[in-house]
Design a protein around this nucleic acid. Sequence first.
DNA 1: ATACAACTGTTGGCCATACAACTTCGGTTT
DNA 2: AAACCGAAGTTGTATGGCCAACAGTTGTAT
Lengths: 252, 252
Amino acid sequence: MSAMTKAGEPRYRRIAEELRTAIADHAYGPGGRLPSEEALAAHYEVSRGTIRQALMLLRHDGLVTSRRGTRRVVLHDAPVQDFAEMQSFARWARSIGETPQGTVIRQAWHPSNPDEQHHLRITPTTPVLRVLRLRHLSNRPAMLERTTYPEPVGAIVEPLPPDTVSVTEHLERAGISVADAEHTIDLIRADPEDAEHLHCAVGDPLLRERRRSTDPAGIPLEWSEDRYLPGSIAFVVHNSLASTPLTRHLNS
Amino acid sequence: MSAMTKAGEPRYRRIAEELRTAIADHAYGPGGRLPSEEALAAHYEVSRGTIRQALMLLRHDGLVTSRRGTRRVVLHDAPVQDFAEMQSFARWARSIGETPQGTVIRQAWHPSNPDEQHHLRITPTTPVLRVLRLRHLSNRPAMLERTTYPEPVGAIVEPLPPDTVSVTEHLERAGISVADAEHTIDLIRADPEDAEHLHCAVGDPLLRERRRSTDPAGIPLEWSEDRYLPGSIAFVVHNSLASTPLTRHLNS
DNA sequence: ATACAACTGTTGGCCATACAACTTCGGTTT
DNA sequence: AAACCGAAGTTGTATGGCCAACAGTTGTAT
C-alpha cells in the first residue's frame, strides 16, 4: 500500500488519494456520510476550496454523491482504476493480477485512408504505421488490436521488438503521453483474420472497442480497433448529472 | 435552436451551454483555440472562476483540452448528449429522430434475490417489482429490458399503462429523479425469452448494458439489464487524465 | 396529534486576488 | 545556423470571503 504521496502532485490530488483509500478501507461504510468540507479543511489544514477540488474528483469518478444541504454519501467502496490502466492493456492486466503478453503479427507503413485521416486529423498524403497485435492474458489469446499511428508516433513504435509488452509505457518514456481518449464500444463478428488469431470461428461475436487517444495538446496519437473475446471482459462506466461522458449512438 | 436559457440554471451552466453551441456551430473550428479565460470572463461579465467552472464541464465531456500555458483546444465539434438522454430510452430515441415505443410483457412483485439486494441495497425481506419491457425504435424491436424497482419506485411504476413510452419521465413528474448511474457493458447470447421478443435466434449475440441508477441522495432507484440487438447501437465514452469514469473488468 | 415555523448545519455559487508553472515566440548570443 | 534567454500570455493551484439554497431537526402553535 504505502500511500506513495508523490511530491510533485498538487495538494488536492493528494487529499483525494487519501480519501479514496479511506473509502476503499470502509472508513465510512457504504451509504455512509463523509465529514463536512469544513471539518476536512481543518483536518488537512487547507482551505475549503481545495477540499472541494478533491471531492470533485471523487464525485466525477462516482465514489460519492454531492447535494446541497447534506453531507456527501459514499456510493461505492471499490477502488477505482486510474486513467493509465484504461489506456494500457499491459498495465490493466497487471493490476488485476494477470500476466500480459503482446505479439506483433504485422506492421507496415501505408498511405492513410479517409477513415484514418479523419480520426488522426492528418492530410491525405502523410503515411501512417499500421500494426496488428495479438494480446494475451496469462497465455490465452484475449484480444486482437489493429492500431494506426501517425508519423511521429509510428517512428517510435516501429523499431520496438515484436513481443513488447507495453507500447504505451515505451511511448511515455519517449515523452509521449496520452491525456484524452474517446472509446466507442459495440459488437462485431469475427472476420477470417480475427478467427485465425483468436482461435474462434468466423462469424463469432466479439466485443469491439475503437479508441482515439490524444495528447495534452489535443493532437491524435493513435487510432485503434480492439476486438475482445467475449465472456471475460466488461466495460464499466459511471455518469451523472455532474458530468456525462457516456452517450449512446446509432450506426456508429 | 433557441438557446432556451433556463432561468433557474446557475450561471456557469448557461455559459457552458452557450459555449457548447458555439463549438457545435464551428465558431472555433476543430483543433481551434478557445478565447482565454480572461477574455471570456470579460465577455460574459463574470469572474474567471465562473468561466473555469463552465469550462470544466466541457472538459469532462471531452469537448476541449486544457493544459497549463496555452489556450484550450477544441477536440470535438459534435454536440454532446446530456445525462437525461442516456438515462431514458425514449428521450434518446426522440433526440436522434426516431419514434420510441415500449411494451410491458410481464410485471410482478417478487421477493428480492441476493443480486438485487446487493445492487439496490435492500434487506432480504423487502419485495421488488420486476418488469420485462420490450423497446421499439420506429416500429422495429431494438432492445429487451429487465428492470427491478425497489418498493417505493415500484409502487409508482406498477399502475402505469403497459405501453408507457417513457417511464423515466413519469418518475420525474412524481418527484423521483436520477442523479448517478453506473453502466456495465458486455456481450451475451440470447436466451429463449430474448429470442422470442427480439425476433432473433437463441444464442445470437446481444449487447448487454446493466445499469444501476441512484437518486441525489445515493439511494438506488432501479437495477436494469438491457439487451440490444447488435448492428445498430454503440456506446461512446470519453475519459481523460482529469476524470476516469471508464474502467475495464474481468468476469463481471 | 398534526401541521407549521424557526433554526442549524451543510453544500452550491460567485467573486477577488495572488502566485506558480508552463507554452510560445522573438531576440540575442554563441 | 543553432542554441540559449527572457518576456508576454495563459492556465493551474490555493486562499479568503460572502450569501443562497436546501436538508434535517427541533420546537411551537393549532
